[in-house]
Each structure stands twice: as structure tokens, then as C-alpha cells.
Design a protein around this nucleic acid. Structure first.
Lengths: 348, 348
DNA sequence: ATTCACTTTGGAAACGATACCAACATGAGA
DNA sequence: TCTCATGTTGGTATCGTTTCCAAAGTGAAT
């Protein structure tokens, strides 16, 4: 039997060369090579050249793994996200990664598929990988295992549109959902709408809470009725919610939709019920959808700058990594009226 | 002056405990702790218990960084992508990450913003980080620095809808764009269309090449005219291309659009030129867009399963990592007719 | 009782870099 | 000429694991 695995050196005949070899070739000590490469001030011209020549001759590139172990910093951050295929989150990821990249950091991404226990697991995994910090857009704000994992990790954390009771103070970038919702509700009320529904996301997440709270407050101020249906970020939830709403004795004349996944279900249910927009019912959605301008009618939208939220999240994390105190930054939302909002139908 | 930085131990009073400390607490050698934790067969019951007790008492979790350095495997793969906010790519990323996660791998993501030099740079960076493999959806197939970086890295590579002349054979997951294009062209031809335009992506990428080649071949077979406008994956390109096409003496009666970013520009230009779909011009787009079913008219689409492409890419990489020979897997595309395709207008 | 195979454990050398410390050289000031 | 501060270099311990090797213990077979 010939042994299938030599199983001795992990990388037997690898092309990569180590600093030792560079040192030997340059005829200097490894520590000197390190000094040259890390830009230490007290290095003579001649040594620097000798080392640099050897480095370029061998095509040497330092091993970031060993560097991380020794320096105690991996120059890596973890992004814990429900689902990177959500355009909202992928734009945030783009903004964050671009900013982190510029600062020399790499970004690990993991999908929790809206399962809170996976959030916690991934946070622990990232901690074991010794990431320098975390960007969190977790799936539930009330999951104890997640909070425990964050506390135990003792890592710098930036929350992305989330609020969390953890021991350490953490930074956060928060969208001011209330602004856009309030503007939308005022607009709807001015058009005679008396019953407004919010087909909302999960109640244990800040965006949904913020939107619901604002809708309730503004509705009370304006003396109109509102109804909130919380649920998952899925088309199914949107569909069920609309079926429920339309079955009410006094169905709402306007619907605000809490996410683009939910929107798909809402539109399907409205189409199935043959409701015309905006003649029968007005529609406002949260977060831009790609072709909203080409829908008939165009979709009124409560927007925010996702890319910028990602950038800010990264900046806040870089701040924390440089030792600054945690802080919270807010990003506005903007209500953009469009053809999907019209006068309330004459009451029956 | 009090020194601001003690600058000695990287993590002065860290909560994390090392294997040494576990060993000491359990009263055994570090190597024994390692054996227990890595499930080595020859470990006595009593030793195993002593170690496990100490481990759980201290809440010890092994340091993956040190593990990686010693074992020579980081259990990390890098995904090089033009722009993670592109829904196509973010769905691939989701599929890939889900699959890799299940196999114990983490995924680093980096955005090249369609700049080939950044592709090369990021590949080198990932190599220095000692990732175990690469998933590549690079921005140009002809960029020498990228090819050099791949060759030098000597890493297992899976190309995602790309073809590349590298030294080592690499695996690839490729979409069969031709199937969908051919079906669409046949459909259009059967409706009387004689001049079909393809507003294409960059000519140095496989999807665009594949689509253009098929369009030309099928057009020749059917005896109809085709025109291809290559360009970047941007709305601007789509807008310019349509302006150009409509300014032709004999403008096309049908347009196939090569990506969802380009689509936005195409739709804008058609709206601006007041062309009705499908009465004046028929439209087919590649790759699903979220609300295509609610556009008026609904958009004919050439689809493929992005999530599955990501999954397959990850599986191919896992295969390579287990030592299997590289291979290529193909994913079909499907033409879905819809209201945006209609009979060719009566020729002028 | 001796040998041998086998299991179980500890010790120490790696993985590839960094940073401390000491040693040596250099030049200025006394 | 002798200090002393400063600049430059090499040697070595260290980051936290794994794994090889050897030593010790066990039991069976001779």
C-alpha cells in the first residue's frame, strides 16, 4: 500500500516563499527583513536595497495569516446579514466593503436566512476567526444567544438599523424611518384617506417598530385610523396580509409596504383581488425597487441611501477600531410621491 | 509623559483563553488538549473528561487563526466580484455562501467595480490572506495581470460564467446563454421580426460573447438581420445604444437586453423616444428582474437560476479542495415569453 | 521473565511573521 | 581619549495551535 497522504508539511512544494528565505538570500536577519517591509525608520539605505532586491527577485509577499497571529489584528471584519441577495443589504454590503477595502480591511459575509440562532452562531464563528470587528444586521433584536455572543466576543460592533441591549455600548447607523412615513401619511391624509394599513416587517426589528410607531402617532394626531400587520420579510406575508385587510368590514384605502419582498406579495394579492391602483387603493412602499419608475402607475416610495448607510457603518467601525467612543449616526428617509398614490375613493 | 501605548502584548486583558491555560487547568499537556478537541482516537476516557470539563468551565474556543497557520488551511474562500449589489451576483453569493458555510468555510467578498486591475489586486490580496480557494466573476477575461495573479496564486479556482486562459486547469460554472437567446430569436422571428438588436454587455466577458455569437448564428440561419452593441453593464450604455439604434435608417423591431443595469437605460430611452412596447418595438431582457411580472406589459425574460449557479460554484470549489480534477458544469437558460414581445410592426 | 505490539501521554519543534533586547558601530561633546 | 546618545543590526522569544517523536504504561504471547 502506498500512503495516500504524506501528511507531513501542509504545503510541500509551494511557490510561496517565507521571510526566512528572503533573509537568507539577502544575507541578513529575518528581523531586518521585517523592519524593511514594515517601514521601520532606522534602516540603512544599503540594507533596505539588499532586502528589496531579494524581495522582488523572489516575488515574496508577506503572509497575512502569520502577521495577524503575531500582531493580534486580522484586518478582517465580519458582516452578519439575513440574506445578501436582498438588494437593500447587498447595497449596504457594497458601501461597507468599498470603505473597508480602502482602509485595508477585508470583509467576511455570512447569511443567517432570518434565523436568529444562526446569527449567534456566525458571530461566535467570526470571533473564533478573530475578526477585528462586526457589522450586524441581525434577524431578531430579542434573541438572547445573539446578545450573549456579542457580549462574549468583546468585539467592536456596529449595528445596521438595529437596536440591541448589550453590555458594551456599540455604534449604530440608523435610518429615520419616521420622516418618510410621516410625510407619506400626511400626503395620504391630505388626499382624504382615513384608513391606512402598514404591511410591516417583523416586530422585533427596528425598522418595523419605527415605522409602526410613527404611523400610529401621526394617525392619532390626524385623527385617522391605522392598522399594522407584522410578519416576515416574505411575499407570502404580504399576500396574506392584504387578503386579511381586504376582508375587513372597513378595508383600508391606502397601504404602506414595509419591504420589497413583502411588496411582491402585496402586488400579487391586489392584482388577484382586481383592485386598481390608485383608484381603489393607494400604495406606498419602503426602500427603492429597481424598476419602480416603469411600473404603471409608478410606485410612491420611501427611500434612503443604502450605499451610504453601508459606508457610514464601515466608517463607524473604523472609528471604533481606532479607539474612539461608540456613537450613533442617523440617515434620513425621503418620501417620493408617485402615481400609485391618489385620492381616497368615495366612501361606500 | 505617560506612554499612550503599552505596546507589549497585543491583547492585554482579553477574555479569550488559550489552549495552554486549558491544559494547565486540566493538569495535562497542551498536546493532549489538542488531541481531545480534534477527536484523535487514542485518548483515554478520563483524560477526555478532564479536558472537556476544563474547556467548558473556561468557555474556551480554539483560535482559528493559529489553527490555520499551523494546519496550512484557512477554511476561507474569496469571492471576487464586480459589484455585490448586482442582484445577479448577490444571489450567486448567497448560494455559494450557504453551501460553503455548510462545509465549514467562510467567504470573503470583494468588489472590483468593473475595474480589471482591482480584480488582480484582490486576487493577490486573497492569496496573501491564504484563502483556500477562489470564486471568480472577474471584470475582464483579457487582463494579463489578473491571469498572472491567478497563476502565481496556484490556488484552486472556480470561474463563475467566465472563460480564462490560465496555466492550471480550473473549474467553472457556465450558463448556456445560447439556449435562451436562440429560443427568443426564434420566437421573435416567428412574429415577423427581421431586425433584432442586442444591447450587450462588455465584449470581453463570456455572457456577452455567448449571447452575441448565438444571436449571429441563429440570425444567419433564419435569414434575418442582427446588430450587436457592446458596452458596460450600465444604464448609460443602454440609453446610448438605444438612441443609436433608433437613429438607424432601418431601426430594429426587437431588442434583447444583456443585463438588468442596461435594461434601465434601454427602458428610459424607449420612453423618451415614446416607443410603445410591444406595438412599436419588442423587448426581451436577460436575467430576472424583481417586479418584471408587474410591468406593463410584463417583460419577456431569459432566465437562469442564479442561486443554483452559486451553489454549483461552491460545490465545484469544494471538489477541488478535496483533490478532485477540475471540471465545468453548465446551467441552462430559459426563455419566458411575455407581453413585451409582440408581432413586428408593419414595415414602413 | 522477556519480548513485542499497542495505547496513552508529554515535550518540543514547527507554521511565518513581529518586536523586544542586546550588541555593535558611529559621531558628537567633554 | 573617554562618554554617551543615537542609529543599525542580529538573535530570540512569542502569537496559539498541531504534530512528530519518544517515553511510559499495559497486556498478551513466547
Amino acid at each position: 500500500m502506498t500512503p495516500l497522504k504524506p501528511a507531513s508539511a501542509p504545503r510541500p512544494s509551494d511557490s510561496r516563499s517565507s521571510m526566512q528565505e528572503v533573509a537568507k538570500r539577502a544575507g541578513v536577519a529575518p528581523s531586518s527583513v521585517s523592519r524593511v517591509l514594515s517601514g521601520h525608520p532606522n534602516v540603512s539605505e544599503v540594507l533596505r536595497n539588499r532586502v528589496n532586491d531579494a524581495v522582488s527577485a523572489m516575488g515574496y509577499e508577506p503572509d497575512l495569516l502569520a502577521q495577524s497571529l503575531r500582531r493580534g489584528a486580522t484586518m478582517t471584519v465580519g458582516f452578519v446579514v439575513a440574506n445578501i441577495s436582498n438588494p437593500l443589504l447587498s447595497e449596504i454590503a457594497l458601501g461597507a466593503e468599498t470603505c473597508l477595502q480602502a482602509a485595508g480591511y477585508s470583509m467576511l459575509v455570512t447569511n443567517s436566512m432570518s434565523e436568529p440562532e444562526l446569527d449567534a452562531e456566525h458571530i461566535r464563528l467570526f470571533a473564533r476567526r478573530r475578526v477585528d470587528g462586526l457589522l450586524l444586521s441581525i434577524s431578531s433584536e430579542n434573541w438572547q444567544a445573539t446578545i450573549d455572543a456579542i457580549n462574549k466576543s468583546a468585539l467592536p460592533v456596529v449595528l445596521v438599523d438595529r437596536e440591541l441591549k448589550v453590555n458594551q455600548p456599540v455604534s449604530a447607523v440608523l435610518a429615520e424611518h419616521g420622516i418618510g412615513i410621516a410625510d407619506a401619511v400626511h400626503h395620504l391624509a391630505s388626499l382624504g384617506h382615513q384608513r391606512i394599513a402598514l404591511v410591516n416587517g417583523p416586530a422585533d426589528l427596528r425598522p418595523a417598530r419605527d415605522r409602526a410607531a410613527t404611523l400610529r402617532r401621526v394617525s392619532r394626531q390626524l385623527g385617522i385610523t391605522c392598522i399594522v400587520r407584522s410578519g416576515a420579510f416574505t411575499a407570502e406575508h404580504g399576500e396574506r396580509a392584504v387578503e386579511f385587510l381586504l376582508a375587513q368590514p372597513d378595508p383600508p384605502t391606502a397601504i404602506v409596504v414595509g419591504s420589497n419582498q413583502i411588496l411582491v406579495g402585496v402586488l400579487r394579492a391586489l392584482r388577484h383581488a382586481a383592485r386598481r391602483i390608485p383608484e381603489d387603493i393607494s400604495l406606498v412602499t419602503c426602500d427603492e425597487v429597481p424598476l419602480a419608475e416603469f411600473l404603471v402607475p409608478p410606485l410612491a416610495t420611501i427611500e434612503r441611501d443604502h450605499f451610504e448607510m453601508g459606508t457610514i457603518a464601515a466608517q463607524l467601525l473604523l472609528e471604533l477600531l481606532s479607539g474612539t467612543k461608540p456613537r450613533t449616526k442617523k440617515v434620513p428617509t425621503t418620501y417620493l410621491p408617485a402615481g400609485s398614490v391618489g385620492p381616497a375613493p368615495a366612501s361606500t
